[in-house]
Design a protein around this nucleic acid. Structure first.
Lengths: 333, 333
DNA sequence: GAATGAAATGAAAACCATTACAATTACTGA
DNA sequence: TCAGTAATTGTAATGGTTTTCATTTCATTC
């Protein structure tokens, strides 16, 4: 049961610790074939695993990165986690997944824990309420990449969607189909989360560019459980919307559920487009037109940016990378 | 930029490292109010964060557990990850998420990395091909819990679904609705993954218990991308099935997609039940009858079992906990 | 004012691997 | 045999914390 250390290996193989360490770090230049073999065998025999904790302590590098998502319930988050995990696996890194639940307190807690654990970097979907923390990481030159959301004034590398375009794609499609009374629903979070703001702004601008006046009654920002109510309010308007843009996958679910319950027919009674593709979009009845985020591409880019900060390769990149969404045209509009 | 250590704090506060350590570990018994205050202030002033790596090295405990899922693409996996993350957050633990991609090599790699990183325990969805590894962990008394799948001969605590019952619930429902020609499709994995086996066995037994002969043409185990083909083969049979049991959420997606494409009407042309609830089940047209796994409950139980192994509280539990699925009756059957 | 005992604090070892460096030994070819 | 190189070793320092145990401090008591 006692753990075996490098010393044990050295003793067994009748070589010095230094040599074993050289071996472990694959510095074979000054090492005879014979000793290499011997060490190899001994390690095998004793089933020795170097203690990474001890190594990390010395090298100040843990080959671990943290991923703090704002809300793990979004399909987008899980897609991103998966892709990041995949990317870093190839690089020999592990990822610690943290779910901040849209709660800045929890986020703070996680970030501090991760730093105390000496992770080599963090990818974070910022809640937006821990400016001082972000600031400090930045000034400590701690590797960090923002995902999905940005905080303008901080100059931290960011990967996010071109949300403005996302709305525009949807609105253009609605208008092309002849709809002018277009509503938008997003989920509510207290803070000024940039995607939501930008999607609403994109919605407004697109309408304006088509010369359609913005009707504030057509814009709702509510919690997931209040979506049915919000929808009811739409339908009680004297001029109910003819089309609805669902701000994310959770909203889309609720919208579809509502329509089903109230036997409102898509797209005849109301047209629907969702931001975020959903697995069932292509076989739902009707198939659902969605604005797709290139989640994998975004995740890979974020991972790449983080890794280059960790390795200090290339010059510092503090820009906001906005990736383009694509409209997946189907039958709901 | 240089990191501050306990030594810095000690020097600043003019006390010894030991005393600071006592403070950090909240052992105030033998400590004057004065020094406590002073240390507190100094930590605040220097913005000191203890280095958890160093602590871990000494304490041989990292407050981190690994979760190795076989395939992160399943809804079930993500639900479980989320719940486990949540449980351990409360306990001050972090989780490292690993996706083995149903690949024993990758699984092996991960397990070894996790152990080298000195995680305090592992929850694993075993691929089933690393018996020696599992064995070794067991004999090292390393905390480990199996999830979703078991390996009989190992006597390792396991949390899994009562898969036999899952099939039975579905079959009983089909039969209650008057169907006798019932097919089952599961995804293929080379190894004998217990849930798949058990679900098929449950299917056979349930049919038998109703006096219905088992027709092997009605049983398919194929990769996700071969599902359309498998379905076509069903429909080319002289007696095509009247009902299909989809072995997991991915299969269900493919089945629904196929039916949509070929304009086969559910439940009139064919009845469908899926194992694993899916987010859209309750508002799809028709709503989908599913057999639901109590994912959160299962995750919590697994986490609890692992934690009790880590803390060595309670006596060793090596039993296989089988949780009951429930039938969510909707309109697809 | 010294002895006592409890409270408070400190010194140093331990954890395990890495690394640097000087020192040693083993070989090679001339 | 010697120089020169290749291979290996030993030692000590490093990293930051915990932990044990010895020591110091201090108030109390006789």
């Amino acid at each position: 049961m006692k753990t075996i250390t490098i010393t044990d290996v050295a003793n067994h193989a009748k070589v010095s610790k230094s040599t074993v360490s050289q071996y472990l770090n694959k510095r074979y230049e000054y090492m005879s074939e014979k000793t290499r073999k011997k060490i190899e065998e001994t390690i095998e025999e004793l089933n020795y695993q170097p203690n990474i904790i001890a190594r990390s302590l010395k090298q100040k590098s843990t080959f671990t990165v943290g991923v703090v998502v704002a809300n793990i319930l979004h399909t987008f988050s899980t897609q991103v986690i998966r892709a990041i995990e995949n990317y870093f696996y190839e690089q020999g890194f592990h990822i610690i997944v943290c779910n901040a639940d849209d709660n800045p307190e929890k986020e703070k807690n996680y970030i501090e824990m991760l730093r105390a654990k000496q992770v080599d970097g963090i990818i974070i979907f910022p809640t937006g309420d821990n400016l001082d923390l972000y600031q400090r990481m930045k000034s400590d030159q701690f590797p960090i990449v923002f995902m999905d959301r940005t905080i303008q004034e901080l100059n931290i590398a960011t990967v996010m969607l071109d949300n403005h375009l996302a709305s525009k794609l949807a609105i253009d499609r609605f208008i092309e189909k002849g709809f002018e009374n277009i509503a938008i629903i997003t989920t509510s979070i207290i803070r000024d989360i940039s995607p939501r703001i930008e999607r609403i702004q994109g919605y407004k601008d697109s309408l304006a560019s088509h010369g359609i006046p913005v009707n504030s009654e057509y814009i709702k920002t509510v919690n997931a459980d209040e979506i049915p109510l919000a929808l009811s309010e739409f339908f009680e308007l004297e001029k109910p919307p003819q089309a609805i843009l669902a701000g994310n996958d959770i909203v889309l679910n609720e919208v579809l559920r509502y329509m089903k319950q109230h036997e409102i027919h898509i797209p005849d009674d109301i047209a629907v487009i969702g931001i975020d593709d959903v697995p069932y979009a292509s076989f739902y009845t009707p198939t659902i037109t969605t604005v797709n985020q290139p989640a994998i591409e975004m995740a890979n880019l974020a991972a790449e940016l983080l890794l280059s900060q960790i390795n200090k390769t290339g010059k510092e990149d503090t820009s906001v990378h906005r990736l383009k969404p694509t409209l997946l045209t189907r039958n709901s509009c």
